[in-house]
Amino acid sequence: MSTNSSAYGSASVRAAGSGFAAARSGAARFTRPAQLDAALIDQLSGGVDPQRLSDMSHTTAASLLDRVHHTQDPQVVERVLTLVEREGVDLVAELWSSAESESLPGVLWRLYMLRTWMRRNREGISRLWRLGEPVATTASAIAGVDQAPTESDIARTADSILSGAFTGDFAVALERASAFCSVISAGLITEVKRRQTESERLGLSESEARAALANSGAPHMAKTAKSLAGTAKDFQAGAGLWRKGRLE
C-alpha cells in the first residue's frame, strides 16, 4: 500500500496533549456567530478574565447543546454542525479549547476538531481504517463504519458523530467518537510497524536506519497515534460522566 505521512495529518489541525486543537492560521477573520451574543464577541476580542472565560465556555456549550436538543429545525442543526466553517475556528477555540477534557466545552471542542480533521484528511483516514479495523474489531462495530470505507463514508461518519451528539444520545455519540479514534490509532501503529520493518530490511547502519525512519514520517505518525488514543479515552470518560449527569 502506498502511503504518505502528510495524508495522516493536517496543517490546520494538530494534536494538542490528548485532544485536538486548531492551529491559528491568521487567515480570514470569523464572522459574528448567530448563536452567540454580540457582547460576548466584544469581550473575547478585547480579552477577558480567565474565570469569566471559563464560565462563558461552560455556559455557551450547555446552551448550544440544549437549544439543538429542543429544536426540530434542520437548519439549526446544520448551522451548529458547520459552526467551525461558518464562524471561524479562532472564535470556537477561544471559547472552548482551554476547557478541561472532562467537561462539556472540552468534549465539544474535541468533537468539532475531530470532525474537521476527518473531513480534511478523509483519503488517508480511509486507508488507515482498513489497517486498524482488523486490529480493533470491537471498536469498529461501535463506530459504525464499514470495513473498507470510502472518502465519502469518512466524511459522512464525521458529520453523523457530531450531529448525533446534538440530536441523539450524547453519550453514544462520544462512544462512537472514542471508537473511531481507537481504530485510526491502531491503523497508524500498524503502519508505523510496517515502515520500521521495511527500514530494518534495508540493512542500514543504526544512524542511517533512524534517518530513514524519520524521513518516512513514522515518528510523526506514532505521535499522532498516541494523541488519538488519549482523545479516545477523553471521549469515553466524557460518555461516562454524561450518563451520571456530571459532564458540565
Rank of each mutant, 00 (worst) to 15 (best):
A225K: 13
D90K: 12
S140A: 11
G47D: 03
L108P: 01
Q196T: 11
V84N: 05
E102T: 10
R120M: 02
G238L: 05
P50R: 10
C181N: 06
D159H: 04
R110T: 03
A62F: 12
A7K: 02
R176I: 07
I142H: 04
R32T: 10
N215Y: 08
V107S: 09
G144R: 11
R195E: 04
S6Q: 00
P219I: 07
R14E: 06
A239T: 07
G132N: 14
L128E: 06
G238E: 00
A22E: 01
Q43F: 08
T231S: 13
L81G: 00
A179Y: 07
A21L: 11
G17I: 05
R24S: 15
A155E: 02
V145T: 06
E87T: 11
S103A: 13
S103R: 03
G19H: 07
V89P: 03
R176P: 09
L53Q: 14
G217I: 14
A15R: 15
V145L: 15
E123N: 14
V89K: 10
Q35L: 08
E133W: 08
A21G: 05
Q196L: 05
W96P: 08
D146S: 12
R67G: 09
L104W: 11
A148D: 05
V89R: 00
I142P: 08
Y112L: 03
S5Y: 13
T60D: 00
G88M: 05
H220E: 12
A34G: 07
T71L: 00
G106Q: 01
L91A: 08
L81R: 12
S178T: 04
